[in-house]
Write a protein that binds this DNA or RNA. Structure first.
Lengths: 125, 125
DNA sequence: GCTGATATATCCGTAAGAGATATATCAGCC
DNA sequence: GGCTGATATATCTCTTACGGATATATCAGC
């Protein structure tokens, strides 16, 4: 069993983003499932967090811009599979570094959850 | 098997803190293991995050003050078990609400990690 | 007494977040 | 066609949280 990235090296300025803020984490996480446009990222982030994280347009588009500046995401043409194209939509996808950074943070979270479990802080299921 | 808090209700102003920022999360998490003083929280946060989160004094003490204002932590007398007492130290402990809020966020993180695993985003171990 | 780690505290510049507003497009309905 | 409401992006500003520097003092070891 092999995985896409193993102990991948990231430049220091990207590692300094760890731990990811909720806005950055859920934006990258949403795009890990597939390419999306901004508004869909906002909706998916809410879904992925079971409603606990609600991103407004201010946070959404400023976060997208910041992630673009760091080359963690990039704009991509409208997917061909799109049924009902909407001319307004701008689609984004994870870059290699974006995926690697997300994986870093997920390992950090998994480690925390496991420690918490040992401390009996969260129910079994 | 029973747990300390099950689906505990928290006031809206506390639920609005979710998802917790890294500084708040690791501060509460450090105190979930036992009562600590400020400087020890800082060190423990670094340990618990495997070094990825380094909290400076500015963030540390402003976070402590904020958590006190929300009554998520409270000051507590020096533990009797302390071997080498240091007059400067100020100890803190989790309140009931602090623990409940931390559990909320841990469930959110666990849910994210599980989804990520299904997407093959993190290695098995 | 000197040094360096420990410990708390405060200040201030910066970055991120949150909400409001604006504008336009699209779908459904009457 | 015209109305409505959800969709979609964009920008602006206020506020908050973060981060680093500085300050002061205590403690342990040499």
């Amino acid at each position: 069993m092999s995985f896409s990235s193993t102990a991948n090296q990231l430049p220091d300025d990207l590692l300094r983003l760890l731990p990811l803020t909720p806005a950055v984490f859920y934006t990258l996480f949403s795009l890990a499932e597939g390419d999306r446009h901004g508004y869909a990222i906002m909706q998916q982030a809410r879904l992925l967090s079971s409603g606990s994280f609600r991103m407004g347009p201010g946070t959404l588009y400023s976060t997208i811009q910041r992630l673009m500046d760091f080359a963690l995401i990039e704009e991509t043409p409208e997917p061909a599979a799109t049924q009902d194209p909407d001319s307004r939509r701008r689609y984004y996808r994870l870059t290699r570094n974006g995926r690697t950074l997300l994986e870093h943070d997920l390992r950090r979270m998994r480690s925390a959850v496991r420690l918490a479990h040992d401390l009996n802080l969260v129910p079994e299921n």
